[in-house]
């Protein structure tokens, strides 16, 4: 018996999210309108979409941020929306040029706080030389929306065809930095544990200066790029393996998780692989350049690791699955599970 209402699972980035987008959106649009001629959109369901104009690719990304709390260690919703949407362009291999912000704010919200949010958003754009060319500003009556919700739309350009995720056997999987930093900070805030866990801090940051140049340089060797936001690393790797039918094998011991984050999550019984990052990229690159990519990322200030590789499935059951070699050398399947609650058992 299927549930006939929207639940928070539908928005959590796991299987339920894929399903609702498939049924609610993609299934309702005729195939020829999933993209424009020469472009990509619902047909790829990637970080962003693009249209082709002459020899140029104009790339778009949009995301709505509903994060609670609005301010958290390491950033706020303004910084988040700017870096999050720019990062989606970076994952497409596009250089961001312009941004639009749609702000929805609750009546009674302090203007001072809104200014702080906008300042952070604008600073992020300015630092990356992205123009703010428009947007919208709506006020909802008190009680109709909790604080502030911001949609960001970003526009980028690329001379080469954008990166559309298509992992290949033999690819190495690279994670550019510590994972679960943002997700664990938000989880702590929501459980009112920020004071208990002073070592937590969101990693929200744009990857325009550190990751984009590397993607541009090694573009022909990069088969997929994705920022592990909602659903975390587990969701992305599962999306990649599912859509390709290949198997991804990761070595859990090589996944960079900062000690403070690991300890906090262990206390709650929450898996860092399922928590969001907001300043990390996951790349699937041809093995011959994997070390060079790691080196280039490290030169740009990132903290990259090769955490696994893509292989042909060795059995029918392994098609589209993500297998982990665990810390103790065992094997386990990483399911796409995006709903994180503290547990006692």
């Amino acid at each position: 018996m299927e549930d006939k209402i929207i639940t928070t699972l539908h928005g959590a980035g796991g299987i339920e999210s894929w399903d609702i987008i498939e049924k609610l959106i993609r299934g309702r649009v005729p195939r020829d309108l999933w993209s424009t001629p020469g472009g990509a959109g619902l047909d790829v369901l990637d970080d962003g979409s693009y249209i082709k104009i002459g020899e140029s690719y104009i790339v778009f990304a949009s995301d709505t941020y509903t994060v609670k709390p609005l301010f958290f260690p390491g950033g706020n919703i303004g910084e988040l929306v700017a870096s999050g949407v720019l990062n989606d362009l970076v994952m497409m291999g596009a250089r961001p040029v312009a941004f639009m912000d749609n702000i929805v704010v609750e009546e009674g919200f302090a203007i001072r706080e809104l200014e702080d949010i906008v300042d952070s958003m604008v600073r992020t754009l300015v630092e990356n030389n992205v123009a703010l060319i428009g947007g919208d500003f709506k006020v909802m009556p008190r009680g109709s929306v909790d604080g502030v919700v911001i949609s960001g739309f970003a526009i980028g350009v690329s001379g080469k065809p954008p990166v559309v995720d298509a992992i290949k056997p033999g690819d190495k999987i690279i994670v550019t930095n510590y994972i679960a930093e943002h997700g664990s900070t938000i989880l702590a805030a929501q459980l009112d544990m920020l004071n208990d866990a002073p070592g937590l801090k969101s990693d929200a940051k744009p990857l325009v200066k550190t990751v984009l140049p590397v993607i541009e340089e090694y573009r022909d060797y990069i088969n997929a790029a994705r920022d592990p936001t909602r659903g975390g690393l587990a969701a992305i790797l599962n999306e990649w393996s599912r859509s390709s039918g290949l198997t991804i094998i990761i070595d859990k011991g090589k996944i960079p998780v900062r000690k403070e984050v690991a300890e906090f999550l262990e206390m709650l019984g929450v898996d860092p692989l399922t928590l969001a990052s907001e300043g990390v990229a996951v790349l699937s690159v041809r093995s011959e350049v994997a070390d060079k990519v790691v080196e280039a990322l490290r030169r740009n200030g990132e903290n990259p690791y090769i955490i696994g590789e893509v292989v042909e499935p060795k059995s029918r059951e392994l098609r589209g699955r993500v297998v982990a070699l665990t810390e103790v050398g065992g094997l386990t399947i990483i399911p796409p599970q995006a709903y994180n609650l503290p547990r006692i058992c």
């Binding site: 059995s315 059951e317 392994l318």
Partner: peptide, 13 residues
């Protein structure tokens, strides 16, 4: 359900 492939002893290499 989530671990059938490895529970069934499928090998990777």
């Amino acid at each position: 359900a989530e671990n059938m492939p490895v529970l069934h002893g499928a090998v990777l290499k």
